[in-house]
């Protein structure tokens, strides 16, 4: 049960930072934290996952659900700081092709 989620939103820009493990136990925590923002119109969200050590398919489900609702409101979601392991998960599931993801070590983090 080890997860930390910090979210800050102002003027339709959401900056987030997640640390720890996202699995069946912690995913509901993450989902609950993201929920208040999912219906904001044209939300521009970026979640930094560089300190996420582990994520399983349940965690993936949370991000996809958030991606779908943000997208349907004309917004954009970006996930950054993905470790090789997380990147592989997004690639295998085909989500890497439709979602905006960025590996660790690239871009301005």
């Amino acid at each position: 049960m080890n997860i930390q989620v910090d979210l800050q939103e102002s003027d339709k820009v959401l900056k987030g930072y997640v640390r720890g493990e996202i699995d069946a136990h912690t995913a509901p925590v993450l989902r609950e934290k993201l929920e208040p923002y999912q219906n904001i119109e044209s939300l521009n969200a970026e979640l930094d996952l560089s300190d996420v050590d582990y994520m399983d398919s349940t965690g993936l489900g949370v991000f996809v659900a958030f991606y779908k609702s943000v997208n349907s409101q004309g917004g954009h979601l970006k996930l950054s700081g993905l470790s090789a392991r997380l990147k592989r998960l997004f690639d295998i599931t085909g989500l890497g092709d439709i979602m905006d993801i960025e590996s660790a070590g690239k871009g301005g983090i």
Partner: peptide, 29 residues
């Protein structure tokens, strides 16, 4: 559809290879 890649074991070489193929999870789009 977004599934863990299957693997093939080749008896001749004794090696495993991943059977990677593109496809999105079912139910996303």
């Amino acid at each position: 559809a977004g599934h863990e890649p299957a693997m093939i074991y080749r008896a001749e070489t004794g090696e495993f290879e991943e059977l990677t193929v593109k496809g999105l999870l079912l139910g996303v789009s």
